[in-house]
Design a binder for these strands. Structure first.
Lengths: 114, 114
DNA sequence: TGCATATATAAGCATATTCTTATAAGATTA
DNA sequence: TAATCTTATAAGAATATGCTTATATATGCA
């Protein structure tokens, strides 16, 4: 809800990152949860390198943070960022993605990473 | 401020359109004003075909509407659209673009289209 | 009707993007 | 240390994007 304004070039770059269905879904999933790479692979039905490359772009732009826990690397939204208010606002306008995580949990594929 | 949710694929497509500095500036200019093509050409310092092609994309996606007045075609934001709330919210996070129009007006180049 | 003005469209090219496959790197466990 | 698991990176190919130049279309006016 904060009204922070960012440079138009930076805003365009962030929006371009969000302007990809895969990345927007990733960010949508991270709105309510931390996720590890293998979960994205499972939910989005894409190859692990493809997911990793999307995550790298999001990380390079400061939209997400990573944290290793044993074998797994968990990603979460970076809320200490000048563009977080914009990202957060965008997320208000897309459908909740948590059901996808729940479906994953039901199928038993989430447990392995925890 | 409305909380309308759009399909994630449609949202991604809209964000991709906004994820270009030229188009984001165009939309930013239209937030407070109608503009004709030649004004965009002048402000953005780009060729007329390049501007026209950006406007076509924005129009095809329903983000803007056009209206011919004599020689000129004026563009304005399409606020009767399911994605307008998203677009509008994004605009809250970028700097005001109207100063660019004012500068154009001062240089006397805006008058010709009115 | 003929010409000028503003805008749109088409084709082509350079660059960017997003996958794929192959491989490397970091962490855990036997 | 060796084997295994998870993730990252690199290289290459297919496709998408955004410009340029050339041309078409629509309107207004002499």
């Amino acid at each position: 809800m904060e009204k922070t304004t960012v440079d138009i070039e930076r805003a365009a770059n962030v929006l371009k990152l969000l302007g990809d269905k895969t990345r927007l879904t990733i960010i949508g999933l991270l709105k309510a949860n931390e996720c590890c790479v293998c979960e994205f692979v499972e939910i989005l039905q894409m190859s692990q390198p493809a997911i990793s490359q999307h995550l790298r772009k999001l990380r390079d732009a400061g939209l997400v943070k990573e944290e290793r826990r044993g074998h797994w690397i968990f990603y979460k939204l970076n809320d200490t960022n000048d563009i977080y208010p914009l990202v957060s606002e965008v997320l208000e306008h897309i459908p909740d993605q948590t059901e996808k995580l729940e479906a994953l949990e039901k199928s038993g594929k989430r447990i392995q990473c925890n």
